[in-house]
Simulated scan of single mutants.
Amino acid sequence: MTVACTEIVLDAHAVTSISDDISKQGWAYRDGQGMAQRLNLDPDSWEDFSRYWENLALDEYMADQGTYRYRRYSEFDFKVGGALHKLPHAAYEQATYINTLNGGVARHFLPLEDGMVEHPLFIALLAGIARVFDRVEGATCDWNIRLHPYRIVTNEFEQGKPTPEGRHRDGVDYIVMMLVRRTGITGGTTRVSTLLNKTLCEVTLANGLDVIMGDDRQIMHEVSPINCQEIGRQGYRDALVIAFTRKGV
């Protein structure tokens, strides 16, 4: 792995502005170009990080029988100022009232690759986002973090569904939805809404690092299906979903 020798870190201005938005309205959107600048991220480091989406595995637990989702999964503990601790690999489970499609099943996915976990951008992202949520909470928190890199594919035979369960929340404290890339597709618009289904934000994440962060206790979200832009050619949407839950509360 070759990574440029710049320090990747989310700057204080970004932490303050994003946390202020979440405190005021429950969510925040930032475009990828601005995030790259605030992270001091160079293009080579981003390309190096995003290549890990090439090694995701087919999700074999789709209750709708879909073959359009590829993923991995790992879980961590983290506190700002301390080290990132990867927890022993285990099945991923959600209650049926949270995930009406695939809940109630112990789903076994491959863990994140070591190179991804050790990448400077990975570490900087989690540390920076933890600082954002700490500021919203008004305390330095012990966080449980669950990470889900996804690739949703589509072709002339199958539509891709980034959120096959539909409008939902994840049953955590805070949620992060970050685009990695989209290739050869239409659709894939993210809608953030109140618990009473009032639209708060509707945006198509289009560029790498475009991101929405939100208080999962206040908002719900969904992403519209994707279709291939050109018949006969597969398209796909790569994303990283990160769930933060405060421990011991």
Rank of each mutant, 00 (worst) to 15 (best):
R30Y: 01
L84R: 08
D59I: 05
I212P: 02
L101G: 08
G128A: 09
L58F: 13
P111D: 12
H168F: 08
T154Y: 09
W27H: 15
E156P: 00
D77T: 08
Q65C: 02
I219N: 11
H148G: 05
M213Y: 03
A36Q: 15
Q229F: 09
C5R: 13
H13V: 15
H85F: 03
T245M: 08
A95V: 04
Q218G: 06
L240V: 12
G208E: 09
R181K: 10
V223R: 00
T6P: 05
H221A: 06
M1V: 11
I123T: 12
Q234P: 03
G82R: 13
T140H: 06
E75K: 14
R182F: 02
Q65T: 02
S19H: 08
K161R: 14
L195M: 11
G26F: 06
A139K: 13
Q65V: 00
G34F: 09
L126S: 04
L205H: 07
Q218W: 03
G171D: 12
S193C: 11
R182M: 04
N144C: 12
W46K: 09
I226T: 05
G138C: 11
E47W: 00
Q33T: 13
Y174H: 10
Q159H: 06
S45N: 15
T2D: 08
V203N: 02
L56W: 05
R51L: 06
T67S: 08
M178F: 05
S50E: 10
I152C: 14
T199C: 10
E202H: 05
Q25E: 13
M116F: 11
A90N: 02
Y150L: 10
L87K: 13
E7K: 15
L56A: 07
Q234L: 09
A239E: 06
G138A: 11
P164A: 07
D42A: 13
Q159Y: 04
V241I: 15
F244G: 08
R107N: 07
I185P: 02
R237L: 13
D216V: 05
A4W: 07
R30L: 06
E156Q: 14
D170Y: 01
L10I: 03
N155T: 10
I98Q: 08
Y70N: 12
A206D: 13
D21L: 12
Y150V: 01
I22E: 07
L147E: 10
T204G: 02
D114R: 00
T204W: 00
H119G: 12
S50D: 07
D20W: 03
M178L: 14
L121H: 10
V192L: 10
V117Q: 07
K86V: 00
M62A: 13
D77H: 10
T6L: 14
I145L: 14
T186V: 12
T194E: 00
E222V: 14
V153C: 12
E137S: 14
F244E: 07
S193K: 01
G34P: 03
G26R: 03
P225L: 01
D210N: 06
G115A: 03
V176Q: 08
I145E: 09
S224C: 08
Y61S: 04
Y52I: 06
D173C: 05
I219K: 11
D134M: 02
F109T: 00
D173Y: 01
D42K: 12
M178V: 06
E222R: 07
L125Q: 14
S23R: 12
V132K: 10
P225W: 01
E158P: 00
R217V: 01
S19R: 07
V192Q: 02
W27L: 15
A124R: 04
